[in-house]
Design a protein around this nucleic acid. Structure first.
Lengths: 139, 139
DNA sequence: CTTGACCTTCCATCTGCTGGAAGGAGCATA
DNA sequence: TATGCTCCTTCCAGCAGATGGAAGGTCAAG
């Protein structure tokens, strides 16, 4: 199976598959003409990667997951721990974004949004809470 | 004010400030020795950028926001529209992450997390829904 | 005069691809 | 056999948004 078919079968773009080979996630064999030759296991692995990436796992996490997947002696404990870590990061990220969302929604609500220049949004961005007045001559 | 003080006053790392100059967000003057010289307005602008970035606006959005901020004839409408767009993107992102979160939480819950190799998480990643069996000989 | 804390520029690196150029391989058709 | 067309190859560049480090200039204190 050439890369085009492997791409179609796995759902990953050919470019991405080449990239995954480059960083050592997969190691397809080569035909005499230099073309990559993907077997069923390769395609399966690519689909595994596609799914893991879609769930937000990083490339390095994917590498670890594939390692665990291929290790018959793995402990599900390890997979769970990795996934829990990832979940925690997502929760953190969601909380951050919800904080931003809150603030932005308030600003949008406060802004008249008309032809006049007065704008609570800009006022908020320009508030100098962060600026320590050093008493310096500004020039 | 040198870059170190400007960094402290604005809350941005010196490296970031240099980068912002490189991409044309700020244009501090230079002293005779080549050192950047930041005035009050520069520092204010940096703090504005820091706040806008912290709210998740992209660099290009920040550029637009600064443009609006410095335009006395701006319409608050434009600021509001920009912010609303940003808010929409954040909502989309939150929704995506919540989808992932849901799936991951289910997987974590389903996994025993013990010394045994059986793992619903790996099973999920390896499900071949995405793989079309092309009926091909795999090599 | 030396030390140390600054400052400068330039180049490389990170994540995870993606786009494009230049050229080879394979197959169908004229 | 020549031509076309699609696929494949490698290599290089670029996206966002910084960040790290090397090599070297500047400045004030002791």
């Amino acid at each position: 199976m050439n890369i085009g078919n492997a791409a179609e079968a796995s759902g990953l773009p050919a470019k991405t598959i080449r990239y995954y080979e480059e960083i050592g996630l997969i190691r397809p064999r080569r035909d005499a003409n230099g073309y990559r030759a993907f077997g069923r296991r390769d395609v399966h692995k690519l689909a595994f990667l596609a799914r893991a990436r879609a769930l937000g796992f990083s490339i390095e996490e994917c590498r670890a997951l594939i390692g665990l997947y291929e290790d018959e002696k793995r402990a599900s404990e390890d997979v769970k721990a990795l996934t829990r870590e990832h979940l925690k990061r997502i929760d953190t990220r969601i909380a951050e974004l919800q904080g931003l969302r809150e603030t932005l929604a308030q600003l949008v609500a406060a802004c008249a949004g008309d032809h006049r220049p007065d704008c609570p949004i800009l006022a908020d961005l320009a508030r100098d809470s962060a600026i320590t007045d050093m008493g310096e001559v500004s020039r």
